[in-house]
Nucleic acid binder design. Structure first.
Lengths: 158, 158
DNA sequence: AGATTTGGTCAATTTCGTTGACTAACTGGC
DNA sequence: GCCAGTTAGTCAACGAAATTGACCAAATCT
């Protein structure tokens, strides 16, 4: 049997699978966070936390990462700051830049996120094997990464 | 160098990759549709068209497929009907059900969608090989499908 | 110094889905 | 055959979240 790919039954469209996969991970992540007492975490927070972990981030950098307007990114940061996860700072060199840095609470949440994340990927590994997960990741990166290995913005809005 | 998977650098989180992948496909699809003159197509339309292709669909069935409320699904169908892509019909057996069927215009759009879609998957195949694409699809289905092979609803809201 | 670009905010609007209340039509018991 | 409950769907009001547009202040260019 080698005729799997021809015409008739190509299986579910990739877009649908990606949408479901993304949603499944995010839903599970936030459900797990809620059971641990984090009940004011919005889906985009995770990406911001990750970005802030790897060095301070500005609103403009978040725009590149998330793919929505700077106004929206600004509001997002405001909300995260109000919830105590991040703090806006000042830069000596450039008074316009107001870097977003993690608070202690933010770091705690980040640790929880990473922890849950490990569980979730482990569940994927249980289904398709650890090498299956890495193959998946590698394939996705191979298709999505542009020259220089940079990934496009996230923004799964619909 | 074999230490890629241990701790430090696990690569981008799957959620991010899925979000980007979904968005990339949808953006490209709609960009391609626009260049062909379809400029009033919203992201969810594709899923509805596909569902309607495989037999008539009711609003309630769309709820299961898309994962949002029947009110929202109803409005979506209204919008698609107003744009001339689908038509509500009546059933002899059950006067409550108002099946959603494709119009000629809807079928034309669907053909365009399928056409573009083939191109997009071909681009994926160019990057990771045709078998890579099918492997990807199979892996995703393996993880996401519940008992009976049914996939959860889509709803990539955020 | 003046012009332009860059980082960021404030305010108004739009988009889209949700909650809530409700109607009409089909089923199940008796 | 009729009443209770369920199913399919709509109408209307609300809410969350992002967008567009106008704007400001600090840096950079010339």
């Amino acid at each position: 049997m080698d005729g799997v790919t021809d015409g008739a039954a190509p299986g579910p469209p990739l877009a649908r699978l990606f949408a479901i996969a993304y949603r499944s991970l995010i839903d599970d992540l936030h459900a797990a966070l809620r059971t641990r007492g984090w009940d004011d975490v919005r889906p985009a927070y995770g990406f911001v936390l990750l970005a802030a972990r790897d060095g301070s981030t500005t609103v403009t950098e978040l725009v590149d990462l998330l793919g929505f307007t700077k106004q929206a990114a600004s509001k997002l940061v405001d909300a995260m700051a109000a919830a105590g996860y991040v703090r806006r700072e000042a830069t000596a060199a450039d008074a316009r830049r107001r870097p977003v840095v993690l608070t202690a609470r933010g770091r705690t949440l980040l640790a929880a996120v990473e922890d849950v994340y490990r569980d979730l990927e482990a569940r994927w590994a249980a289904a398709i094997g650890p090498d299956g997960v890495e193959r998946l990741r590698a394939d996705l990166v191979a298709v999505l990464a542009g020259p220089g290995g940079t990934l496009p913005p996230v923004r799964p809005t619909w």
